[in-house]
Write a protein that binds this DNA or RNA. Sequence first.
DNA 1: TTTGAAAACGAACAGCT
DNA 2: AGCTGTTCGTTTTCAAA
Lengths: 156, 156
Amino acid sequence: MTLELDAIDRRILAELQIDATLSAEQLSQRVGLSRNACWRRVRMLEESGVIAGRVALLDPEKLGYGLSVFMLIRTSSHEPHWLETFRGAVTSLPEITGIYRMSGDLDYVLRARVADMKAYDRLYQRLIAKVPLSDCSASFVMEEIRETTALPVQQR
Amino acid sequence: MTLELDAIDRRILAELQIDATLSAEQLSQRVGLSRNACWRRVRMLEESGVIAGRVALLDPEKLGYGLSVFMLIRTSSHEPHWLETFRGAVTSLPEITGIYRMSGDLDYVLRARVADMKAYDRLYQRLIAKVPLSDCSASFVMEEIRETTALPVQQR
DNA sequence: TTTGAAAACGAACAGCT
DNA sequence: AGCTGTTCGTTTTCAAA
């Protein structure tokens, strides 16, 4: 299942990753194609699943989620029961926007968004009430230098 | 500048965070409002910047970015020159989709997307060629249990 | 001032050349 | 692939509450 995407497809993807509201007309001008040809390519990219969806991105500051946290978790217990409980606990908390099972000596990485330190502490308390964590270290994001959903589709 | 968003605004945001292609008609049915009233709210949310934009999300697997990596960086040198070089280096690499300056003993966290281990190594080599890293540990994502751009706007 | 209906406009989609 | 027509969504206007 190797997809063959040419330079124009990649150009289209690059544009839509930045602004998905572009009309077929606008898009066609940017990539140098007729409106219809362009529209058909977009449709193909959607149907093949390369474009997984279109979402609205919200401003975290304006909604009271100005503090971003990474939680690095090491677990002593690797029994199935603990794992299940852990999964149930983390997935039940919507402030946790990223949940990753890792290789190496780290077991899980969590990414959470909260209002402030106090809100973080509440989240942490709710989490450890649901599942015991033997080793969890939190790091707070001081500055988001980059945060993008865009993949490098146009790579030179 | 405190924004007052009522339950319907939040319902709208919740829907658009999942699917930004919903028409005003569809949206209005889901949130229980007339088409126009709904449309006016969306417009207000856009103008106030609560809705920061609409983007297409692509399938990383289908584009050859199946491996996700977190790089945890500690730096010995905190001189302005090193910092500047570091920023230039990381921001020049588009595979690095997240760049965060942290509090605590971690200095930076990077999130990158690559094809495989070999591609990771190439990225790493390119990075350290641009800026010396005294302490950088990489952790690879084995499983993305959750990865969402959606903020919990509807909280209970 | 806010809400709903409806007209006008523009974009999306399908069929045909 | 391009052209064209029909359908559908968006945006504006207007009238009523």
